[in-house]
Design a protein around this nucleic acid. Sequence first.
DNA 1: CATTTTTGTTAATGTAAGGTTAAAAGGCTG
DNA 2: CAGCCTTTTAACCTTACATTAACAAAAATG
Lengths: 234, 234
Amino acid sequence: MEEYKKRILLVEDDPNFGTVLKDYLMMNDYEVTHAKNGMEGFEKFKKDDFDLCILDVMMPYKDGFTLAKEIREKNTDVPIVFLTAKTMKEDVLKGYKVGADDYLNKPFDSEVLLMKIKAIIQRKATETISDSKQFEFKIGRFDLNSKLRFLKFDGGEPVKLSPKENELLRLLALHENDLMPRELALTKIWRDDNYFTSRSMDVYIAKLRKYLKLDEKVEILNIHGEGFRLVINN
Amino acid sequence: MEEYKKRILLVEDDPNFGTVLKDYLMMNDYEVTHAKNGMEGFEKFKKDDFDLCILDVMMPYKDGFTLAKEIREKNTDVPIVFLTAKTMKEDVLKGYKVGADDYLNKPFDSEVLLMKIKAIIQRKATETISDSKQFEFKIGRFDLNSKLRFLKFDGGEPVKLSPKENELLRLLALHENDLMPRELALTKIWRDDNYFTSRSMDVYIAKLRKYLKLDEKVEILNIHGEGFRLVINN
DNA sequence: CATTTTTGTTAATGTAAGGTTAAAAGGCTG
DNA sequence: CAGCCTTTTAACCTTACATTAACAAAAATG
């Protein structure tokens, strides 16, 4: 049913583990590009079009998170999976901030690996095919249509949103009631995470708050140093 | 390509049956720790990191359910399987209340046992991290959400926690009823262990105590020269 | 039992992050 | 290139946080 092999970018500095993993994936019908470090990984990423990136967290020179951020600046969609040592639970949070899709504990069960890979690629595929849900959100008494970029209150007159307003509100809605990490918005929407883009984002948060004031049950909360949270109180 | 053996904690008071089961599991490539009673089981559980717990229901001093509850308080994730003498419906119900993953009737088919074990470990491994549990703690009448950094009392209005407050309370909760060594908090949270970070930590302990005063059953005790202990009195 | 060490607690301070508004800079289109 | 929309930058203000100081109390020490 699949006409072409799915392409995986594997960035892993341990040559033994990397090679074994690559071979194993290839045996299971994936096309694998193996980069030995973050730098090389980024180069290869730019040159090609991948269905999935598997990044080792701990690598010399450029760690997996830094690489992930760079990848996200280029491509907001490609699934990213981290390889972490089993005991590093803090890694999980950090990965989540840069938009990780999943993580794998090293050493791991090869069967689990395959299942996860399949599930992630599959999920991504169905996401992109299935239409509306990605672009239409109910936010309290508001309706956001982020394809047409408007926001309606109580089914009344739609307010037009600018591209940035729209993307930001959409990202908040995707994380409704949950943390939307600052870093994630900056890498996904602004494609750069620095002081100015960060301040710019704050300006947009203020704008969105103004729109959302109409429904006092809806608010954007800040989590100091972490990000924002779109909450709908019942 | 299994890189490491799955670890099983087996708590079974019948020495004959326990030994046979242990040997059988080890023959099938599991690493098995065998405890002869609930008390010992809990001690061994705290000391190690297991992929599965198999608990006999009927044991002297501490039965399997009580043990399971204690294990759940420490770890919300580890799969637990009960061994019951025969199909006792009350047992089954009771077991699910404390988060049992499956049941095995004694005596049982060894093939079935292996299949179930495999399936359970597999299922657990496939679950993704996004499943909150890593960040949510129940502390007496409080709920700590350490991802969103708030503390709720009796499901009321959440109080925001600062990053340090949050990490410290989380670390205490991870060691609930147990010593959380000063040194551990300092190296993990402050990343430096000196006079000033130590005093800073004391300030945060005072802050946490203030929050926790609402539930008189919850307190942070000091163990002079050692660290702190978050106790929940019943 | 006096003295030192450790902990409890509150308040003050300095810095960083965020909230908000307005002005400047970019971009696009008629 | 004028006018409009969007985005960024600047400015100013407020809040949040972590640290340090200061003093009190408790615990250990010899």
